[in-house]
């Protein structure tokens, strides 16, 4: 009986260690790859080389890394600020006020979350063309301001906000808008942090929509850069590795700095 237990334990740990190695190894390989030249990368060299400075130099000089990063940060930060404001306000409106027809409109919105992006893509693209926003970062920002997922996420959190505080503030004569901005928002910091991470990641990693909208190199974001570099005729693998590291780094930093919010931001909706 006891030996059987030890054997199962050993299997469990072997499984965990295998999962650990498989999960983490590509990150190591990405770091090693960024220090190697194209041939070494594609031949699967696992050790560090001396090409890092050179790869970064190529990335900056011939692929306009600083411009591309500036684009990505600009779009992502604007999206985060905008969507936190719009989505949390909507969630608050749905949760706190018993206005007529709110349940019906909320249900319609939630249902539309099931519709895949592919089904919106074409009319959305034509709309952007009509608005004259093709090749404009605004097209990426404005379409993601109202996020159904975030409205849902915020509403779940507002459910636990004590109504007595809102009532008390009303009695004290505070206006509805002031109550929201100076009482509710400041006391829900962790919810906002989690939502910010979700919004930032979604925007930073977006591919299909930017691919359709952004057509000139000047407007490119980091995901578009990686994609186009890798489909080049003679891909510079070491440089691509450097670009992958640069694209992954901000999210990794965010992840380790705010780990608990991070998981909450990605999964919060199912927790009660």
């Amino acid at each position: 009986m006891k030996t059987k237990k030890i054997i199962t334990r050993a299997f469990v740990y072997a499984f965990l260690i295998a999962a650990f190695v498989v999960s983490v190894f590509p990150f190591y390989w990405m770091l090693a790859g960024m220090t190697n030249n194209a041939i070494d990368v594609i031949k699967g060299k696992m050790t560090f080389g001396g090409q890092m400075i050179n790869n970064l130099k190529v990335l900056i000089t011939s692929h306009n890394l600083t411009g591309v990063l500036a684009n990505s940060f600009k779009v992502s930060i604007a999206t985060v600020i905008g969507t936190l404001l719009v989505s949390s306000m909507a969630a608050y409106g749905f949760e706190v006020y018993e206005s007529k027809g709110r349940n019906r409109s909320y249900a319609i919105i939630l249902l539309s979350m099931m519709v895949p992006f592919a089904a919106l893509m074409i009319p959305l693209f034509r709309l952007i063309v009509r608005f004259g926003l093709l090749d404009n970062h605004l097209a990426l920002i404005v379409t993601s301001l109202a996020s159904v997922f975030l409205i849902f996420f915020f509403r779940q959190s507002f459910k636990s906000f004590p109504r007595e505080i809102i009532q008390a503030a009303r009695v004290d004569g505070a206006g509805e808008i002031r109550i929201f901005f100076s009482i509710v928002v400041p006391s829900m910091k962790s919810t906002y942090a989690a939502a910010a991470i979700y919004a930032f990641m979604t925007s930073w990693n977006a591919y299909l929509w930017p691919l359709i909208i952004l057509q000139t190199d000047k407007q490119k974001t980091i995901t578009l850069l990686i994609s186009s570099m890798s489909s080049a005729y003679f891909p510079e693998y070491g440089v691509i590795m450097a670009a992958i590291v640069v694209a992954t780094l901000p999210i990794i930093i965010l992840f380790f700095a705010l780990q608990s919010y991070f998981v909450q931001g990605m999964t919060g909706s199912v927790k009660q």
Binding site: M89, I108, E176
Partner: peptide, 22 residues
Amino acid sequence: RYGWFFVSFALVLLGIFLIYPI
């Protein structure tokens, strides 16, 4: 009034960029 005020921005945006395209 306030219920609709708070949701109005999102509703307009969702109307244009989600419901209309669907």
